[in-house]
Amino acid sequence: MKAGTDLAQIASLVGDPARANMLAALMGGTALTASELAMEAGVTLPTASAHLARLSDGGLLRMTRQGRHRYYALADHQVAAMLESIMGVAAALGPRKVLPGPRDTAMREARICYDHLAGEAGVAMFDAFAGRGLIAIDGDDVNLTDKGAGFFSDFGLDIEAMRGKRRPVCRSCLDWSVRRSHLAGSLGAGMLDRFIALKWARREKNSRVIRFTPPGRAAFEKMLRADEGRTGA
């Protein structure tokens, strides 16, 4: 059956340990070179190049050239969502760490998932926006409400531009660490960009971890609790 064949093909691409490590390294949304991905996978450069060719041919990666270098990134947000879901299954069914380290704690609290906020902070934001009626959830569908459009426009986001894109404005993404949904889509990406622009948070170097500053954390939590008004001017 064709559907089964397609599933098996994608599973075989993701299932190799070296390729899985490469894909996980690209979940931060940053394009990396073959050499950098070889280091992430713990393989030689020729082996990494062979893996990257398979991932590219399979539609999971896109490659761009800049000068003499080739940079690889996840093909799109759908690939990132698939990987996040697989990580959730692995976290639920795989071996459990008895004493997770500080890096694990930071990743659980707030991290980037391709281009949007994930972890406990991302889930809290999704729940708060739904509770305040800024987004409407109907099963697996997430939609921006009129109230939400006004709020996010006041926060500094271009909602009309988001609506003109092929990418969904709102989408839920299953969070592998919290195992509940966080906000993805153009709106999720826009909110994280806005947090960074406002200096509420910054991305930790060479990591998916998002660090909120103390004032930024306070402003973020105030935004989640607020009912009305401008929050990010």
Rank of each mutant, 00 (worst) to 15 (best):
L174Y: 11
D127M: 04
R62E: 08
G232M: 15
M27R: 10
R166E: 10
A226M: 00
R179L: 06
A31C: 08
A25Q: 10
S49P: 07
R217S: 12
A218Q: 08
D141H: 05
E109H: 02
L23S: 05
K199H: 09
R180N: 07
M63A: 11
E84V: 05
R179V: 09
T213N: 05
L157P: 05
M63I: 15
G216Q: 03
A20R: 14
D57S: 10
R203L: 15
A73L: 06
R70W: 02
K2P: 06
A136D: 07
A24C: 11
A31N: 07
M39G: 09
A110I: 12
K205R: 03
E109Y: 01
L198G: 07
D158P: 03
A128K: 02
P100V: 01
N206Y: 15
M39K: 12
R180H: 12
L174Q: 09
T5Y: 14
A48N: 09
K199Q: 10
D227N: 14
T47F: 11
V169T: 13
G28T: 02
K2S: 09
A161D: 03
P214E: 05
A219P: 06
C170L: 01
R163S: 04
G59C: 09
M125E: 09
A197M: 01
D6I: 04
S172C: 06
S12K: 15
D193W: 14
A233N: 03
M27F: 15
A149Q: 13
V43F: 12
A226I: 01
M125P: 13
S181N: 04
D6K: 09
R103S: 09
D6G: 10
T231V: 13
K205G: 03
K222H: 08
D6V: 09
D140L: 12
A20I: 14
M1H: 06
L37F: 02
V98Q: 03
R167P: 08
P215Y: 13
A218K: 11
R103V: 14
R208G: 03
A73S: 06
A121K: 03
A50F: 15
A219M: 14
L45V: 07
